[in-house]
Amino acid sequence: MRVFLQVWRQKNGQSKGRFERYEASDISPDMSLLEMLDVVNEGLVQKNEAPIAFDHDCREGICGMCGLVINGVPHGSEGGATTCQLHMRKFRDGDEIWIEPFRAKAFPVLRDCVVDRTALDRIIQAGGFISVRTGAAPDANQILVPKEDADLAMDAAACIGCGACVAACPNASAMLFTAAKLSHLGLLPQGQPERYSRALAMVKQMDAEGFGACTNHEECEAVCPKEVSIDFIARMNRDFAKAAATFRPPKARGGGD
């Protein structure tokens, strides 16, 4: 098959970008979309032109590295899939396909379709963990976790941190991402001691990074390749409200011998 691409090209973070049109011919419907781009890139190299830069690694939907907006939808309109899991058989011969980077103030473009998503890492660094020292853990079966809680925590933990939720949101909010982590840890007994301080810290960082607020567009859930539910946002809001109302910062630890 043959398709036409409109691809966002931008030399670096400082320069202005624009769409460029490319023709991709001799495309097999069994190819993945990224394999199609590989073929286009090989052609560009033959013409001594800079290939299209895009992020990817595992190419099987788990690392969260890939992320293209395809025809206006982060990860394309397949649903429950990442960019690397799209196949050309979902397009028709002669289609025009628009390909651009995830866009958000907190995700500056580095080149073409590659963006900087380190803001998400900083949200985790603000408190998205359970403070446990290596070697200080009790026997695993001393901590009983009801199966339903473990399963729900796993639903939240399935987030791959790709940032599609941010790219889909009209406010570029990172609520779904943050809520997924807060719920994963907050649902487990191990996560209870830091549950409220964690909610405060992560939300604060989220705001500091320039992500927007949630105004219930629900676009995030629709594009999430792991189908993480927006119910987790409600859970986060509850924890945050409770934390804001009752949380007292810890007193300075001192003394001792």
Binding site: I130, P138, A157, H184, G191
Partner: peptide, 9 residues
């Protein structure tokens, strides 16, 4: 033990 304490589901 370590992973469970960290919250690995």
């Amino acid at each position: 033990d370590q992973c469970t304490a960290q919250g690995v589901p």
